[in-house]
Amino acid sequence: MSVDTRPQLLPPSGPPPRQRRRFSLAALLGEILITLGVIVLLFVVWQLWWTDVTSRASFEATGDALQSEWHASAGDAPKQISEPDYGEAFALMYIPAIKDAVWGVPVVEGTSRDELMRGVGHHPDAALPGEDGNFAVAGHRVTYGKPFNQIAELRPGDQVIVETESGYYTYELDNSEIVEASEGWVLQPNPQAEITSKPGDPLITIYSCHPMYSAAQRYVYFGHLVEETTKDNPPAALEDSSA
């Protein structure tokens, strides 16, 4: 009798002994840190991609709303628009040279965060389109629809067309400059008195942050008004590429 036939006391089958889950502070901390890292990455994705999606949709909706509003009141359009309310979209901007980025982008009164999410921002103190003085407009270089992302690719002679309820204002760009963020002179009624134009001429300044992804400096483009047409007489550049 060499074989043991007694029933075994401990059956070999059944679930393996459960591993004891021990609380580990290091493991918990690690998981929390990894999670935070992923959230920060998601924030970057949100900034660089999602804000463009939402702002572009907003540009389009505002543009359509403005167009139909103007269409409804066509006929009794004023000769010159009146001072817009803060935060109001009152014009549309077209830059044929960068038409993928700036084609019917709303011009909103004011240049703080909320306004620049909804279009390019007009300085409330600056002149209105077509007016004598400087029509000064700020726009994002990156994020929030990045209308002026390609501002550095513009060349002297490129046109900036501004449409309002009263007509079309075609500006021609003259020269660009990179200035420090504090150099507010670029917004003044005649910023380049020594180079161009007579004081009081209708000018334009568009600017964005520089270098890209930084806020240290500003990329500024100066220009002057070359043509002013009525609503039923849009500039050739608009007629060619619209519809």
């Binding site: 001072e83 703080s112 965060r113 994002h140 507010g184 806020a215």
Partner: peptide, 28 residues
Amino acid sequence: VFPVVDSHLQFDQSHVESLALPATAVTA
């Protein structure tokens, strides 16, 4: 969450906001 966080960080606002008209400039 992110829109609220962003409005407090305001990376974007400094992109352009600090380029204000000097005190001597025209007022609206």
